[in-house]
Nucleic acid binder design. Structure first.
Length: 585
RNA sequence: GGGGGCGUAGCUCAGUUUGGUUAGAGCGCCGGCCUGUCACGCCGGAGGUCGCGAGUUCGAGUCUCGUCGCUCCCGCCA
């Protein structure tokens, strides 16, 4: 018995043909006499009919069929009787009258029905992922993921990129996320690290003269999970030689165009909008702004710096800021609603959320009394206050005030219906700070990574005022979600050493950890730069999914476990011994 | 590491507020009947360590403490 057709293809024009279909039993309707079976494969469903008048033995055998049995059926394609067609089915015009039935395999009753829109807990779904993956909706996601990967490959191949593989067993680098370590059997006491990204290898490929490289590659970061974060995830990683920001961004924009055109049949306009980091944070509060709606923040620090409201003036005095967000027309928010929003901002460490309701005649607010008429006039002008408005304020360190109001902005944007869910709005965020100060470790850290080039005009501040140095990094943000990021890299040893030094990495440590890079940089390194995209996030957006777990065939739970295989699991004594490891538990 | 939500039949849930007889429903499953269904129909039936462990109580699905798992978020994620 050999399959002749898939379960989605047969129609009126095939009537009379003898066909062989193979697939799973979606549903069985046993009328005692005639038995209907919906046979499902990856492509669709065809109704096959067992009729005792056609073949009594086959009909008898069909009584035993249950859901998810795997069948092969031979039969003749027939028109359905008058009025019995099913318009909901692509193959609803016809049915297959079965003359031969092969039961390849029986199946235990599945833990849930193989249907879209079923409500099953994720625990159950992940524990039986091979069954969950039979659902058309998930298969559609995986298909779309496949199409996305193919689109990217085709696009980059056409631009003369070379797909090259880089090692998975590599060495740990001190910066960045926590590494997954792999013990080396033949080097007792030594460990490989799984790559957080192929960053250094792709730079070496540029130094090697590959000119243009890409890879769709797994990366590993041993950090806590989120809806959009898995410990192993896939990047579209690329790097180009002899380029500046504009070149990389143009390639990225073209990639997005072909993706959205191929997958969603949507034509994107390029170039995408640009915002500097300072603009993004200033106007939207976040470095990954959702620019589908306005509701921008305003800085009122200068106006309230000398005000009688100590929370505001005090914050400014301590180097903080007072930022405002005008929720236009929201004057009817209740006390409880405002309390809830206060709680929302508290999540981001805001100590309070001040508010003013703008009435026709006066301000209704616990803090209105603290302001002079001049201050009120200035505020009203800066924030565009009009009767009916509800204005929120956070006074805090810039990071806290912006982030708290930025998230409040996203919340309000969604709640007030300002967001068009069908819109895809890209924006580049550029000129990130090169460094940030890590309070807990009392040292500077690279915001992007230590190989990102500073803006040339800021070079001389690397030592004097490192926090003011901007970088040649760029993030691509889509609808408030960071989907990619990259930079122009440092391609000269001397500059790389200065940056590592600014990061508090001694020359000795630098030589030990990055010696191979430093020496490569003085072996004829071309100017180069690149970008990496979070493929899972990108596909999730293309599939309209909130969680990347919906576009990953075998995702991990929040505790980084695989419910299907039971990974991670204990190692045997013998395994540990071979690796010269001893358990401390 | 921290905060929120969830955990009762194979699945989705009700019951927990106010402790009290034999823990219910829908779907699924099993059996019977049924020749035109496509969420087939009708009749009958099985199925429970109320996540786990302590405690309070005459009595715990229900109250208390602990613990495990799933999930959302903060921290973390160059």
């Amino acid at each position: 018995m050999r399959r002749t057709h898939h379960c989605c293809i047969l129609g009126s024009s095939d009537v009379g043909k003898e066909v062989v279909l193979m697939g799973w039993v979606q549903r069985r309707r046993d009328h005692g006499g005639v038995i209907f079976v919906d046979l499902r494969d990856r492509r669709g469903i065809t109704q096959v009919v067992f009729n005792p008048l056609v073949d009594e033995a086959v009909h008898e055998k069909a009584h035993g069929i249950r859901n998810e049995f795997v069948l092969g059926v031979r039969g003749r394609v027939d028109h359905r009787p008058e009025g019995m067609t099913n318009p909901n089915l692509v193959t609803g015009e016809i049915e297959v009258m079965v003359t031969e039935l092969k039961i390849f395999n029986e199946a235990k009753t599945p833990p849930f029905l193989i249907e879209d829109d079923i409500e099953v807990s994720e625990t159950v779904r992940l524990a039986h992922r091979h069954i969950d993956l039979r659902r058309p909706a998930i298969q559609a996601n995986l298909l779309r993921r496949h199409q996305a990967a193919q689109t990217v490959r085709k696009y980059l191949n056409n631009l003369d990129f070379i797909e090259a593989e880089t090692p998975v067993l590599t060495r740990s680098t001190p910066e960045g996320a926590r590494d997954y370590l792999v013990p080396s059997r033949v080097n007792p006491g030594m460990f490989y690290a799984l790559p957080q990204s192929p960053q250094l290898f792709k730079q070496l490929l540029m130094i090697a003269g590959l000119d243009r490289y890409y890879q769709i590659v797994k990366c590993f970061r041993d950090e806590d999970l989120r809806a959009d974060r898995q410990p192993e995830f896939t990047q579209i990683d690329l790097e180009m030689s002899f380029v500046g920001e504009e070149d990389v961004m143009a390639v990225a924009e073209g990639m997005m165009q072909s993706l959205f055109s191929n997958i969603l049949d949507l034509e994107l306009n390029t170039p995408f909008d640009r915002l500097t980091y300072a603009e993004a944070v200033g106007r939207y509060g976040l470095d990954k702004p959702d620019v589908r709606f306005g509701l921008e923040l305003a800085d009122v620090s200068d106006i309230v710096a000398a005000s009688g409201f100590k929370v505001f003036s005090g914050a400014v005095e301590k180097g903080g800021v007072v930022k405002a967000l005008n929720a236009k027309g929201c004057i009817d928010f209740s006390r409880k609603e405002i309390d809830d929003l206060t709680a929302l901002t508290a999540v981001y460490r805001a100590k309070g959320l001040a508010w003013i309701k703008v009435r026709e005649d006066a301000w209704q607010s616990p803090i209105a009394k603290f302001f002079t008429d001049e201050e009120k006039t200035a505020l009203a002008g800066r924030i565009d206050m009009a009767p009916g408005d509800l204005v929120f304020f956070v006074a805090d360190a810039p990071g806290v005030a912006n982030e708290a109001l930025g998230h409040l902005r996203n919340h309000l944007g969604s709640r007030l219906g300002h967001i068009d869910e069908n819109e895809f709005r890209f924006v580049w965020v550029t000129e990130f700070p090169l460094l940030e100060y890590d309070e807990s470790e009392k040292r500077y850290q690279a915001l992007h990574h230590p190989f990102t080039a500073p803006l040339e005009e800021d070079y001389d501040r690397l030592e004097k005022d490192p926090l003011s140095v901007r970088s040649r990094a760029y993030d691509l943000v889509l609808n408030g979600s960071e989907i990619g990021g990259g930079s122009i890299r440092i391609h000269q040893r001397e500059l790389q050493e200065r940056v590592l030094s600014a990061l508090g990495i001694s020359a000795e440590v630098a030589e030990e950890k990055f010696g191979f890079l430093l020496s490569a940089l003085e072996s004829g390194a071309p100017p180069h730069g690149g970008i990496a995209f979070g493929f899972d996030r990108l596909v999730a957006l293309l599939c309209g999914q909130r969680s990347i777990r919906e576009v990953i065939a075998f995702p991990k739970t929040q505790k980084a476990a695989c419910l299907l295989t039971g990974a991670p699991s204990a190692a045997t004594k013998a395994q540990l011994e071979e690796l010269s490891l001893r358990m401390m538990l």
